[in-house]
Design a binder for these strands. Sequence first.
DNA 1: GGCATACGTTACCGACAGGTAACATGATGA
DNA 2: TCATCATGTTACCTGTCGGTAACGTATGCC
Lengths: 206, 206
Amino acid sequence: MRPPEAQTPCAPAAGKSRVRDRIFETACDLFNRHGIRGVGVDAIAAEAGSNKMSFYRSFASKDALVAEYLQEQEREYWAWWDAAVARYPDDPRRQVEALFEAQLDHAKSSGCRGCALGNAAVEISDHEDELSTLVRAYKEQVRRRLRAIAHAMGARDADSLGDALMLLLDGGNFTRLTFALGSGPIAAALPAVRTLIDAHLLGKSG
Amino acid sequence: MRPPEAQTPCAPAAGKSRVRDRIFETACDLFNRHGIRGVGVDAIAAEAGSNKMSFYRSFASKDALVAEYLQEQEREYWAWWDAAVARYPDDPRRQVEALFEAQLDHAKSSGCRGCALGNAAVEISDHEDELSTLVRAYKEQVRRRLRAIAHAMGARDADSLGDALMLLLDGGNFTRLTFALGSGPIAAALPAVRTLIDAHLLGKSG
DNA sequence: GGCATACGTTACCGACAGGTAACATGATGA
DNA sequence: TCATCATGTTACCTGTCGGTAACGTATGCC
């Protein structure tokens, strides 16, 4: 996927450089804080202690940077997910609870702006195919994973349960944008999750 | 709130004109479709069959238009809410179900882009006080209303139930941005709502 | 007719956006 | 020492943005 051109003799891996990394980290931070359309290339480079020219030596365009940003956000998200889930192998119910616990925990951090990928869906119009495809693939995987866990629990209407869990998850992400740190309705997610799982494990409900 | 200046002798009500209405409707449509930052004043005026100069004769600034847009969206939303709820006076449980039925129904329309106010929260940075205050007030009222209905049901942990309902509602709005018409997880909202209400009416759950 | 209202048209402004050219510098390594 | 590479610097291009000035015109009211 990535052409092996411009390979430096040693040091940083495959075409990556120090400024590039600094710029990219800065970009991720600014995109998260102000939205994708709310941050210009110039501002990113300056905030990274560099300049626009150096930016364009590392990134083909702003769109390329945004795509990489979204991919990185997804990568981090799944790492976060896997870490939460890994603590309870073979216990899908506790896995789900751990996910929502971790979400609540993360929502209490001041830098949290909900779901970066989901927020991007608001900003990118439908014709920006590459970006919206990234977001769609991510959301579909969230859905698939939650449904799979619901199935693993042996729940009745597992797909429906998985989807309901996704609604609670995304509801938390969405409301987090508006409500300050610990004050939002997101704290109600975990009890609701437990109730729903109970209902889907004991009997038919909807 | 609105100064009574420039009152025309008769015809359209209090300072409003035909172009103004056309421009405003066009703006609402475009904001919904492409986001607030994704639409320029020029594009709005042109799409409305007018021009920028006429725009600025009716609106003090783009920010003023955006504020009015958000207020209008909120007005329409509560009208929609009240209509759904009014069909079942004195039956709070059915009121909630009617809300989620109406949401699902609306989500199936092609123009639906979830929650306009919530989407705006993604685009406006924190320092734009006037706009983010509008969004926050709206979201707080959603929360208050859902909690109130939960209380009216006589539910245990009514606040928690109300918050959980809000998460499901906003989760539906958020996911609607990504999943096409009827294909998203939003269909799982209503069964989940019923399950949660049942649990909160029968016994303690979480 | 005279006048104000409402609207269209053209042209312009300063600011900033994404993106590029050309050149200077400083470290590295053969 | 000399070439190379990564980076910084300055200047510039084009386009678009929010916003304004000045002028023209159709309508309708008195």
